Lab assay of single mutants.
Amino acid sequence: TLKVHYKYTVVMKTQPGLPYSQVRDMVSKKLELRLEHTKLSYRPRDSNELVPLSEDSMKDAWGQVKNYCLTLWCE
């Protein structure tokens, strides 16, 4: 499951381990945003700071799954 905080919160079913490009595509379609305006980030467990997502950091983000849910933020 993927939970995304935006102006409102959406929850989507997804497969764990998807690459950033696929996750961003899913989120942009769900929120009806243009792909270039979809910026995603996540919060590591040991931090209060949001970390921007990229293809490289997506593996780390999937490591933050809690209760089968990855929580992301969209700007």
Rank of each mutant, 00 (worst) to 15 (best):
V4G: 01
G17T: 06
Y8N: 13
S47K: 12
T9V: 05
L53A: 05
Q22E: 14
D46R: 05
L2I: 15
T9F: 02
P16L: 14
E36L: 04
R34C: 08
V11P: 05
T9K: 02
V4K: 05
G17S: 04
L50G: 09
N48V: 12
R45G: 12
D46C: 10
Y68K: 15
V11R: 09
Y8G: 15
V51T: 07
K39F: 09
E32D: 14
Y8A: 08
V10F: 11
K29T: 03
W73P: 09
K30Y: 00
G17M: 04
K7S: 09
M26L: 11
T38A: 06
T38R: 01
K29H: 14
V51P: 10
P19D: 11
E32K: 15
R45A: 13
D25A: 14
Q22V: 14
N67E: 09
S41E: 08
K7G: 04
E32N: 15
G17A: 05
M26T: 05
Y68R: 15
V65R: 09
E32H: 13
P16I: 14
L53E: 01
S21K: 12
Q22D: 12
E32I: 04
T9P: 08
G63V: 07
Q22A: 13
E32P: 00
E55W: 03
R34S: 14
P52H: 06
P16A: 11
K29D: 06
C69P: 08
A61L: 00
Y8W: 10
R45K: 14
L40A: 00
S28H: 11
K30P: 03
L40P: 00
V4M: 04
K59H: 14
Y8I: 07
S41F: 15
P19T: 14
G17K: 01
M58A: 06
Q64S: 15
C69V: 10
D60P: 04
D46Q: 09
Y8R: 12
L53T: 00
V27L: 01
Y8K: 13
N48K: 12
T38W: 06
K39Q: 11
L18G: 03
L72H: 05
T71V: 10
E55V: 02
V27I: 10
S54M: 03
C69A: 06
W73C: 08
P16N: 08
S28T: 04
L53M: 02
P44L: 11
G63P: 00
E55L: 08
K13M: 08
L31W: 07
D56A: 13
R34F: 03
L40R: 02
V27R: 03
T38Q: 11
T14A: 13
L31P: 01
D25V: 07
P52C: 13
N67L: 14
E49I: 09
P16S: 11
K13V: 06
G63A: 15
T9M: 02
Y68H: 15
S57A: 10
T71R: 01
P16R: 10
P44D: 14
V23N: 01
L2V: 08
N48W: 09
S47V: 05
Y42A: 02
P44G: 05
Y20N: 09
M58Q: 07
S41L: 14
L50A: 08
K39P: 01
W62F: 02
K66E: 15
M58I: 10
L50F: 10
L70E: 11
V65L: 10
C69G: 06
E36I: 04
K59G: 13
E32V: 02
D46H: 14
R45F: 13
V10M: 10
P19I: 09
S21Q: 13
S28R: 00
L2H: 07
T38S: 02
Y68M: 15
L18N: 07
T9W: 06
Q15P: 13
Y6W: 14
N48A: 13
V23P: 00
D60K: 09
S28V: 06
S57Y: 13
S54H: 11
S41R: 09
A61Y: 01
K59N: 13
H5M: 01
N48E: 15
K66W: 05
Y68V: 08
Y20R: 02
S28C: 10
K59P: 14
E49R: 11
N48T: 14
L18T: 11
V10A: 09
Y20K: 11
S54I: 00
D25Y: 10
V27K: 03
D60G: 08
S41Q: 08
K3G: 04
A61P: 02
Y42K: 05
C74A: 14
Q22T: 12
Y20Q: 08
L18V: 12
C74D: 04
C74W: 01
R43Y: 08
L53W: 01
K3E: 07
H37L: 14
E36H: 04
A61I: 10
W73D: 02
D60F: 08
V27Y: 04
P44H: 12
V23L: 09
M26R: 06
Y6N: 07
V51D: 09
L35A: 15
T71G: 03
T14D: 05
L40D: 06
V51E: 09
G63D: 14
D56V: 07
E36A: 06
L31Q: 04
D60L: 09
V10R: 00
D56E: 15
D46I: 07
T38E: 01
V11T: 14
T71Q: 11
T38P: 04
T9Q: 04
L40W: 02
Q64D: 11
D60R: 04
Y20A: 00
K13C: 10
R34Y: 08
S41K: 14
M26H: 05
V10Q: 07
D56N: 10
V4D: 08
T71I: 01
